[in-house]
Design a protein around this nucleic acid. Structure first.
Length: 515
RNA sequence: GCCCCGGUGGUGUAGUCCGGCCAAUCAUUCGGGACUCUCGAUCCCGUGACCCGGGUUCAAAUCCCGGCCGGGGCACCA
């Protein structure tokens, strides 16, 4: 029975099946409702530090923020948290790339802000807190301060009156205090069970920031918690999505919100997201690039958005995988199988098929003395797209892949897909000799002969295959009819889906996506 | 060491807040089969899990206590 007959018969004996099937198809993973979210009033933000490239781990916070904003007809803000010109120095290129990658993922921010543009605003709030007696300028030696803190004791500067604090603050701004000599702290509970929460630092001095956006205009820079607290409030952020490494920061920032009489946004802390066997860490990636072990930030082995893109992973697949993972607090490791399965569903219908023969071995065929042109559909399920032509010429060898060597060795007959069936006479790594047997596909099917792809001639093509930390390069021949452009995602039959990475003068490079 | 947070098949996820309808959902992987000029797609069928131990209860994946394991934080980083 073919599919139609089977379906017809099934409708007779089990009509309910089809109704259920229809329901199942519509079952799509969606995000759960967001607590305290009102339609039209949700404001979310994605706040990366442009000191590196956007990767899958960052994508979790970004996609959740964006999706929820959209779900509630709210606003999605991109804010560059570029307040560390020293340890995590921002670089101009990453500002651009992050925005570019965000857009590629389909997330256009409603607003874009730069923390480095807002220093004066931070200063205002610092002064206000100083004046209120809720913050102080601490000039303790860091190690000494730490000791006091761990003992739950105040440092000598803590209880000085606001007038002195403001004077000290002035000295910080004026340059009287040098880098490392003074810091503004927000008062909290000195007996807080978690020492890390006690009187946390809010602003510090960087003598020569040489910031990519503001140069040396400012020498007092806010720390993450301070800048973030001010901005989330000022920008009207209602919901924050961030990794659980920030969970303790909520405790810290709440003190500030209480002093200022602000309401803290709803924070959702999610676990860390990683992908099977892939390095996501910015610093490790950077090191690998510097040492020449990686081709760049978009090396196919990496988990950066650019790398995923280069491999032919569609933005929608990344979005789906993140939504599937949801907002759980536990860490998750996405498997390539899963990502590939989602991506395959997306690209299978659009990817045209071609024959790519990796590590070609010539095959000489005897006993067929006519020219014969095989016409193969560009896509088996879409004949309307047309065909590719592969011409067999008597006396000229065709090429088959070394990857099929084992198969050839153990087979007596084989079908050359869309051409004809042959009997194998000699099989070695250097060449294969075969004899024409028959034309009909049906005969091959009856005998269950295996089928391989082949190419009469072809253009040189190399495929980059990421395998863990290795990047394997497969060289071979791609059929002549494959006129491809960069970014095309196609399937090399019996090889896998690939994205065309570069095309130059009949030469081609592709990156392997998945089977 | 101190402080948070987690733990459902190989992987991811639903269910946990408000105990029963959960001998646990869906996807992927894996095994088997159907169909098909790709080892692609499609379609059937199947294997496979509530970290452990106590307690509460008529009833616990769900509540409580303890343990184990995992992650994170303890920066003048974000």
């Amino acid at each position: 029975m073919n599919i139609e007959e089977q379906e017809k018969r099934l409708r007779e004996i089990y009509p309910e099946f089809f109704e259920e099937k229809k329901e199942k198809k519509e079952e799509k993973k969606v995000l759960p409702p967001l607590p305290k979210a009102e339609k039209g009033k949700v404001v979310t933000r994605f706040a990366p530090n442009p000191d590196g490239v956007f990767h899958l781990g960052n994508a979790r916070a970004a996609i959740l923020s964006y999706e929820y904003a959209r779900m509630y007809d709210g606003k999605f803000i991109l804010r560059f948290d570029d307040t560390d010109p020293k340890v995590k120095r921002p670089e101009p290129i990453f500002y651009e790339w992050i925005l570019e990658d965000l857009k590629w993922l389909g997330m256009e921010p409603d607003e874009i802000h730069y923390a480095s543009d807002r220093l004066e605003l931070y200063y205002e709030y610092a002064e206000r807190l100083l004046r209120m007696g809720k913050a102080y300028v601490c000039t303790c030696e860091p190690s000494h301060y730490k000791k006091l803190r761990d003992e739950g004791k105040p440092c000598p500067h803590r209880e000085l009156p606001p007038e002195i604090q403001l004077e000290e603050w002035r000295k910080m701004l004026d340059g009287e205090y040098k880098e490392g000599e003074a810091v503004v702290r927000i008062k909290t509970d000195l007996k807080h069970p978690n020492p890390a929460v006690r009187d946390w630092p809010a602003l510090r001095i960087i003598d020569e920031p040489n910031h990519p956006r503001t140069g040396n205009k400012y020498r007092v820079w806010p720390l993450y918690n301070f800048a973030s607290a001010v901005d989330d409030h000022e920008l009207g952020v209602t919901h924050i999505f961030r990794g659980q490494e920030h969970a303790e920061n909520e405790t810290r920032q709440r003190y500030m919100y209480d002093y200022l009489g602000w309401g803290y946004p709803q924070a959702v802390h999610h676990g860390r997201l990683s992908i099977e066997g892939v390095v996501l860490s910015k610093s490790k990636t950077r090191k690998g690039i510097e040492e020449g072990r990686y081709l760049g930030w978009d090396d196919p082995r990496l988990g950066t958005i650019r790398a995923l893109k280069r491999r032919g992973i569609k933005p929608e697949a990344i979005r789906e995988v993140i939504i599937e993972v949801g907002l759980k607090r536990s860490d998750t490791t996405i498997s390539w199988d899963n990502l590939a399965a989602i991506n395959r569903k997306l690209i299978e219908p659009i990817a045209n098929r071609y024959f790519f023969v990796a590590d070609p071995i010539p095959m000489h065929i005897e006993g067929f003395e006519e020219e014969f042109t095989a016409e193969v559909p560009l896509h088996p399920d879409h004949p309307e797209r047309g065909v590719r032509k592969l011409k067999f010429t008597p006396g000229k060898p065709i090429y088959v892949s070394k990857d099929d060597l084992e198969l050839l060795k153990k087979s007596e007959y084989i079908r050359l897909k869309d051409l004809f069936n042959v009997r194998l006479l000699e099989v070695s790594e250097r060449e294969v000799v075969a004899e024409f047997d028959s034309l009909e596909y049906e005969k091959a099917r009856e005998h269950r002969w295996r089928m391989i792809h082949w190419v009469p001639e072809g253009k040189p093509c190399e495929v980059l295959i990421p395998e863990g930390d290795e990047l394997i390069v497969k060289r071979g021949l791609l059929e002549m009819d494959a006129t491809l452009n960069v970014d095309d995602v196609v399937q090399f039959e019996r090889f896998g889906f690939v994205r065309v990475d570069a095309v130059e003068e009949g030469k081609l490079r592709a990156v392997f996506a998945h089977k």
